[in-house]
C-alpha cells in the first residue's frame, strides 16, 4: 500500500524536555490510523510535526512525498486542533464559509455540506458561542473538512461527543478513507482503536506498537485492546524495549 506519511527517527524537544525519542512509523494512504496513548505521551507533538508546525530536533517527516510543512502541502492537509479553532462570534455556517472561501474551487455549498456532515445542520445558523463544547468541536471539524484535504490530522475529534455522534463521525471517517483520504486520528479512548485500520500506540514519546488492531491484540495474547496496551507497557518497562 502506498505511504502517505513517513516519519523517520523523529526527535522533538520542547524546552529542556525530550518529547519524542527517535520515533519511526509510516501511515498508508487511504487508511484510518489511530494514534493512541495517555495524555502527555506525545500524540499532539507528533501530529504537529506531521502538519509542519513543530520545530524538530532531528529526523525526517514527509507527507505525500514532500517534507512536512512545505507550502505545496497546505491545501492537501487538514488539521483539527485539540481545542476548537472557530470564531465564537460567528455562526457555524459563517465559520465554515470563512474557511471555504480561503480555498480555490470550494463553494459555500461545500461549506454547508461539511456542516451537515458533522451533524450540525440544525445549528448552522447558531452562534458558536452558544454551542455546547461537543458542538463547538464539531463546528471546528466542519471547518477542517471543508477543503476536502487528502490527509486529515484529527487531534481527539470525538472528545465530548455522545456515543451516537461518535459512531456517526467514525462512519464518516471510514467513508473518507474509502474515498482515498488518509486519516490520522488521536484518542486516549481505547474503544475507538478497534475502528482503525492501524494503531500507533505511544507512551512517553516512544512507539510501543505499530500494527493492526488484531495483531496488537494477538501480540499481547488478549482480545481486549485496553489489556493489550497495558501488557505492552509492562513488557516495555521490564525489557526497556518496545515489542
Amino acid at each position: 500500500m502506498e505511504t502517505a506519511i513517513e516519519v523517520r527517527n523523529l526527535v522533538v524537544e520542547r524546552g529542556k524536555r525530550r518529547v519524542l525519542h527517535g520515533l519511526t512509523c509510516s501511515i498508508p494512504r487511504g487508511s484510518v490510523t489511530g494514534l493512541l496513548g495517555p495524555s502527555g505521551s506525545g500524540k499532539t507533538t507528533l501530529m504537529r510535526a506531521i502538519v509542519g508546525v513543530q520545530i524538530v530536533k532531528s529526523g525526517v517527516v514527509t507527507v505525500l512525498g514532500e517534507p512536512a510543512g512545505t507550502p505545496r502541502l497546505r491545501h492537501k492537509i487538514g488539521y483539527l486542533t485539540q481545542s476548537p479553532s472557530v470564531y465564537a462570534d460567528l455562526t457555524v455556517r459563517e465559520n465554515a464559509r470563512y474557511f471555504a472561501s480561503l480555498y480555490k474551487g470550494i463553494t459555500p455549498a461545500d461549506a454547508d455540506n461539511a456542516v451537515e456532515m458533522v451533524g450540525l445542520g440544525d445549528a448552522a445558523n447558531q452562534l458558536v458561542a452558544t454551542l455546547s463544547g461537543g458542538q463547538r468541536a464539531r463546528a471546528s471539524l466542519a471547518c477542517t473538512l471543508v477543503s476536502r484535504p487528502e490527509v486529515l490530522i484529527l487531534d481527539e475529534p470525538t472528545v465530548g461527543q455522545d456515543p451516537v455522534l461518535r459512531d456517526e463521525l467514525w462512519h464518516q471517517f471510514r467513508a473518507m478513507a474509502a474515498a482515498g483520504t488518509t486519516l490520522l486520528v488521536s484518542s486516549h479512548v481505547m474503544d475507538e482503536a478497534s475502528r482503525c485500520d492501524r494503531l500507533l500506540l505511544i507512551r512517553e514519546g516512544a512507539l510501543i506498537a505499530d500494527d493492526t488492531p488484531d495483531l496488537v491484540r494477538a501480540s499481547a495474547g488478549t482480545n481486549d485492546l485496553d489489556a493489550a496496551f497495558l501488557h505492552l507497557i509492562r513488557t516495555m518497562e521490564k525489557t526497556g524495549v518496545a515489542s
Binding site: V51, V53, I77, T81, S85, F99, L102, T144, S147
Partner: peptide
C-alpha cells in the same frame, strides 16, 4: 492556527 497550517 488552522489558517496558517492548512490554508494559504
Amino acid at each position: 492556527k488552522t489558517v496558517f497550517t492548512t490554508g494559504p
